[in-house]
Design a binder for these strands. Structure first.
Lengths: 390, 390
DNA sequence: ACACATTTGTAAATAGTCCTAACGAATTTG
DNA sequence: CAAATTCGTTAGGACTATTTACAAATGTGT
C-alpha cells in the first residue's frame, strides 16, 4: 500500500485543546490562539460564502489587519482564493471577495454500518459526494473485515482527484475517542484499533466514530438539524446519535446512544439476543419488523404493528427528550418502515408523555440525507478536526 | 442597600470564551490565553494543595518562567500565598511552597429550592460553610419572593468577613443562561431576571442556576461523583441535574433535567397537576409519597409503596442512563424516603433494564452533602466562573 | 466637474504572551 | 569540599494581535 502524506501543514488539528470551560485541562500558547482565529476565519467563509476581508473582520471581531494576515496564510496554503471585486453600489474602495477553495482538498468518507455492504465515497469540502465505491461484506469478520475496509480506503484514495484532507469512518458498535472499535458484534471486532491501523497504512489523518454519531453530525451540518438533537438509526440494530450544543456526545465510556438494549414497557415483550425481554431492538430492528409485517394479514394489521413499534420508541425516548430538553428527533433507516404510522406514533407518544408543549416545539422527521448520511457525517468529522470547520 | 464592588480585578471571568471545539464562536486574543493559563495554575493549586512553582510548571506543561510570572500576579492579587520552604531531603535549592489563599475571598451561596424556606450561607474558597442564614418563605411569591432573596443576600453580605467573590443562587424552575428564571411556579416567577437584579443591587458578580444542576455540580466537586452523572432531586417536585464531561448541561432551551412531568409506565397512573396521568412526580414527589405511606397499614405495605416508586424512577431513568452512558446516579432528598427500599428498587430496575452490566459498573447512591448541597453547588459555579477553578 | 466622505486593504510601531538560554542561589551527594 | 541537582529569576527573542496612519478606489453632493 502506498503511503501518502497530507500535502499541507494545515492538515493538523487547529483550535484549542478541547475540554469545557469548567475544567481547563492544558496550557494554551499564543500559537494555539492563532489556530483558533484561523479556524474562525475559515468557518466564516464556510458558512457565509463569499466575503471580503473587511466583512470577516466585522463578523469575527478581529481587526482587518489580523484578518488580512490570516487570509494571506490561507491563500498560500490554497484553502482560500480571491474571487475578484464585489460589484455593488457602495461608496469606498470595492471589496475583494474571498471564497473557501472547494478544490483544495477532498475527503474520504466510509460507512460500515450496513449489514451486508461497506460503502465509501470521495467528498468535496462542502460534503458533496464526488464518487462512490461499495464493497460487499460477504460475511467477513475480524481481520477480514478490517482488510476489506483498508481495500475500500485504498480504492477511494486512488479515485480522489485532489489532495486528501483525511479519512472519516462511521463504524457500528462502540468506538472510543482514539478510534478504537471496542465492540462491534456484527463485524467481529473487539478492541480493534481501526483508526491507528488506517492512519499508519495510508499516512493520512483518520477519524473513526460511531455510525449514529456520524449520522447526527451530518444531519446537523447538511440537514439543517438543531444543535441539540437525537438521531435514531434503525437497521439491523437500533442505535442513537446525540448532538448536544452542536457537538457529538460520546459519553464517559464512549457508549452514549446505545439504546438498543434498553427495555421499554412493563409488559414483558419478546426475548432479545442480549438475554433480556422487551428491548427496544425487539420492537424496532428491521429483521423483526419485517417479519412481523410479513405475517400481517391486512394493511390495518400492518399499521397496527408499525404504530405499536412507534409507541415503544416514543416511550423510550420520552425520558431522554425530557432530560436533555431536546427539540428535535430525527429518524434514519428504511423509509417504508419508518416514515408513516411508525413516525406518527412516535411523535404522538412523545407529545403525550413529555412537557414538550410547554418547553416549546418538539419536532420529529425523517432524515433527508438518505444512505449517504453516515459517510457525510464522517466527512464532517474530518472537516471539523482538520480545519475547525463544520 | 449598599453597593459593594468586588475588590480585585480578578473577579472577572477568565478562561476562554466557552463553546466547544467544533464550533469556534469568537475570537481569542493572547490575553485570553493568559487568563486560561492563569486558571490552570490556580486549578493546580486548588486540587493538589501546596506546590512549588517548579511543581506547577511540570504539572501544567508551562515553563518555570511563565509560572513564576503568573504566580507573581496571583500573589499581588492575594489569591496565592507563599508558605515557606519545602522540608524534604532532595538535592538542589529548596522549593518555595505556594498555596491557594483560602482567606482571599468568601462566596455567598443561596438555595431557593426548599418549599417553605430560603437558605443561604457564607462559604470559603474550599466550599466550606462559614455561616448560615435562613429565611422563612411564608408563601411569598413574585416580587415578595424576590425581595426576600435580596434581603437574604444582604444579611449574608453583612455576615461575610472577607471580600466577596460572588453570589451563587440555586433556584427551582427553569433558569436560562443569563440567570433569568423563566418559570418557577412555586415562587410565582415568570421571566424573573434574578441574576441581573441582584448583580445591580449588590454590585457583585451573581450567578443564578437551576437547583438540581447546582446540586449535581456540588456532588461532583465535593461528593466525589463522576464527571458524567445525573442527580435526582426529590422534594415538592422532582427534578434532575445533569453533569456531562464534568460540566452542567442546561439544554437548548435551558430546560434540561425537567423530568418531573415525564410519564412513566403504560398503565395510567394518578392524575397530575399538569393534566397528564402517571407523571414521575405523581409517584415520587414527597407530598404524594408521604400521603401514600401515611395510609399504609403495615411496614410491608409501606415498603411496597417505596419499592413501587423506586421502580418507576428506574423505568424513567433507564433510557437516559443508556443514552448518555452514565455510570452514576445520585439521589438527593428526604433520606427516610429515598434511602432504603426505594433506592434499592431504582438500582435493581436500572440494572434489569439497561446494558449496565456490559458497559461497566453503574452505581446509585444518596448524596453525602445533606441540605447544603445546592448552596455549595452554587458556590462552585461562582468559583468556576470567577476563577476558573472547581 | 470636482472636492469630500466612505470603504478597503496594507504598513509601521506597540503591547502582550510565552519561549529558550543562561545564571546565581541553595542544598545534597560522593 | 567539589560536583551534581534543583529552584527561581533575568535577559533576549519569536509570535500574536492591536492601534494608528495611509494610499487606493469608489460614490455623493454641489
Amino acid at each position: 500500500m502506498t503511503t501518502q502524506k497530507s500535502p499541507f501543514a494545515v492538515a493538523r488539528t487547529h483550535g484549542f485543546p478541547s475540554g469545557r470551560a469548567l475544567r481547563p485541562s492544558s496550557k494554551v500558547l499564543p500559537e494555539h490562539a492563532r489556530g483558533h482565529n484561523r479556524s474562525l476565519v475559515l468557518q466564516t467563509l464556510y458558512r457565509a460564502g463569499q466575503q471580503s476581508r473587511a466583512d470577516i473582520a466585522r463578523e469575527t471581531g478581529l481587526t482587518r489587519v489580523t484578518v488580512s494576515d490570516l487570509v494571506a496564510e490561507l491563500i498560500v496554503e490554497g484553502l482560500v482564493v480571491e474571487m475578484g471585486q464585489r460589484e455593488d453600489a457602495r461608496p469606498g474602495k470595492p471589496a475583494t471577495l474571498l471564497e473557501l477553495n472547494a478544490l483544495a482538498f477532498q475527503i474520504i468518507g466510509i460507512d460500515l454500518s450496513e449489514y451486508a455492504i461497506f460503502r465509501g465515497a470521495v467528498l468535496d469540502l462542502r460534503g458533496r459526494v464526488i464518487s462512490r465505491v461499495e464493497v460487499p461484506l460477504e460475511s467477513s469478520r475480524g481481520a477480514d473485515a478490517t482488510a476489506k475496509v483498508a481495500a475500500l480506503v485504498q480504492s477511494l484514495v486512488s479515485a480522489a482527484t485532489l489532495p486528501i484532507l483525511g479519512v472519516g469512518v462511521g463504524s457500528p458498535g462502540i468506538v472510543d475517542r482514539d478510534g478504537v472499535v471496542l465492540t462491534a458484534p456484527n463485524l467481529g471486532w473487539t478492541g480493534e484499533p481501526l483508526q491507528a491501523t488506517l492512519a499508519e497504512q495510508f499516512g493520512l489523518p483518520v477519524l473513526v466514530i460511531n455510525d449514529a454519531n456520524a449520522a447526527a453530525l451530518a444531519e446537523h451540518s447538511f440537514g439543517g438539524a438543531d444543535s441539540d438533537m437525537i438521531l435514531i438509526k434503525v437497521g439491523h440494530g437500533v442505535g442513537a446519535g446525540l448532538l448536544l450544543d452542536g457537538s457529538p456526545f460520546f459519553g464517559g465510556r464512549s457508549a452514549a446512544g446505545e439504546i438498543g438494549h434498553v427495555v421499554v414497557g412493563t409488559d414483558g415483550g419478546a426475548a432479545c439476543v442480549c438475554g433480556k425481554h422487551g428491548c427496544l431492538e425487539t420492537w424496532l430492528a428491521t429483521p423483526r419488523l419485517d417479519a412481523a409485517i410479513a405475517s400481517a394479514e391486512s394493511s390495518e394489521q400492518k399499521n397496527t404493528i408499525l404504530r405499536e413499534a412507534g409507541q415503544r420508541l416514543g416511550i423510550a425516548l420520552a425520558p431522554v427528550v425530557g432530560a436533555l430538553d431536546l427539540a428535535e428527533v430525527v429518524l434514519s433507516g428504511p423509509t417504508e418502515l419508518l416514515d408513516g404510522p411508525l413516525a406518527e406514533a412516535v411523535i404522538e407518544t412523545l407529545r403525550a408523555r413529555t412537557m414538550a408543549e410547554f418547553h416549546g416545539d418538539l419536532s420529529l422527521r425523517m432524515t433527508t440525507l438518505g444512505e449517504d448520511i453516515v459517510m457525510r457525517g464522517a466527512a464532517v468529522m474530518v472537516l471539523s478536526g482538520q480545519l475547525g470547520v463544520s
